[in-house]
């Protein structure tokens, strides 16, 4: 009875789970996907969107942009960054960079927290997120959350509004961000979230928060978590929205089709920017026996 490959089917009651906006979004989209990806930790290497090569280019371009933005915000001189963007084999990157440099002056104000990781308890679990940028204005007790979006098409406001990221990021900043605000939690009204689109720099989408919205967010998140905790092994059901399965790598496992959906129709950005907290252990020497 080799137990090496035995996978858990429900949340371990003895072990807290690290929730993120991505995992909660997966649950909201499809409970079965959540179970496969986060409970069973099952890698399933099917295509996420077609053409595969273009999808990969898209994801890698997005990752390179995020890196350039992070470098610029950390104080790396802009000239070499501009040269790197110009020399990139993908011409879109140079254009995105140019858009970003126009935004940069607006980001100079206040205190900047780049690639900020925050975490707070959520019931008997934990909620974590990594923010592209949080701009803090201590004198006003105000904060602006910036999120770079590199999707091919600009998502609709209604779609963004329904995403768990829009709920989780301001909520978690209130919960875990008091150390950024002189020891005082940010008032929800003082938090703004901005989605800035690399391809549509003049059309950012802004969301403000409120005390009522914050309280509602807390209740919604706890309700989601309780719902997940209560599910038995067979309770993680497939989404009734079969359209979603076109962009899900587990579609073959769920018998929901063979080919991936077209990249151009994918509203989300793909997995490279899911906001998961990952630690790169590639270079850690393992005992080799």
């Amino acid at each position: 009875m080799d137990q090496s490959k035995v996978r858990r089917l429900v949340l371990d009651p003895a072990e807290p789970f690290a929730f993120s906006q991505a995992s909660l979004q997966d649950y909201a989209d499809c409970a079965r996907r959540f179970q496969l990806r986060y409970v069973q930790r099952l890698s399933w290497p099917a295509a996420q969107a077609e053409p595969v090569q273009e999808n990969e280019q898209h994801l890698r371009r997005g990752a390179r942009f995020h890196r350039l933005a992070q470098q610029a915000l950390l104080g790396v001189p802009l000239e070499p960054l501009a040269q790197i963007a110009a020399a990139d084999p993908d011409p879109a990157l140079a254009a995105w960079w140019e858009h970003f440099t126009r935004l940069l002056p607006a980001l100079e104000a206040g205190e900047r927290r780049v690639e900020l990781g925050l975490s707070a308890p959520l019931g008997r679990h934990r909620l974590s997120a990594v923010y592209d940028l949080v701009q803090v204005f201590p004198a006003e007790g105000r904060a602006v959350i910036w999120d770079w979006k590199t999707s091919l098409a600009r998502p609709r406001r209604a779609w963004l509004e329904g995403r768990l990221q829009t709920l989780v990021y301001p909520y978690l900043l209130v919960q875990a961000g008091s150390w950024l605000n002189g020891g005082q939690p940010f008032a929800p009204e003082q938090i703004e979230m901005v989605y800035w689109f690399t391809g549509f720099p003049d059309k950012p989408e802004r969301f403000t928060c409120s005390a009522a919205a914050y309280r509602k967010a807390g209740r919604s998140l706890m309700a989601l978590v309780r719902e997940i905790e209560a599910l038995g092994p067979d309770g993680f059901e497939k989404t009734p929205e079969e359209k979603t399965c076109r962009f899900c790598v587990y579609r073959s496992l769920c018998e929901r089709g063979a080919g991936a959906g077209p990249l151009a129709e994918q509203e989300d950005e793909g997995e490279a920017e899911s906001g998961e907290i990952e630690i790169d252990f590639d270079q850690i020497g393992e005992i080799r026996y």
Binding site: P16, L118, S119, A120, P121, R124, R126, A176
Partner: peptide, 9 residues
């Protein structure tokens, strides 16, 4: 990962 850790960065 546990809720015992205080919220923060």
């Amino acid at each position: 990962r546990s809720p015992a850790a205080a919220p923060g960065g």
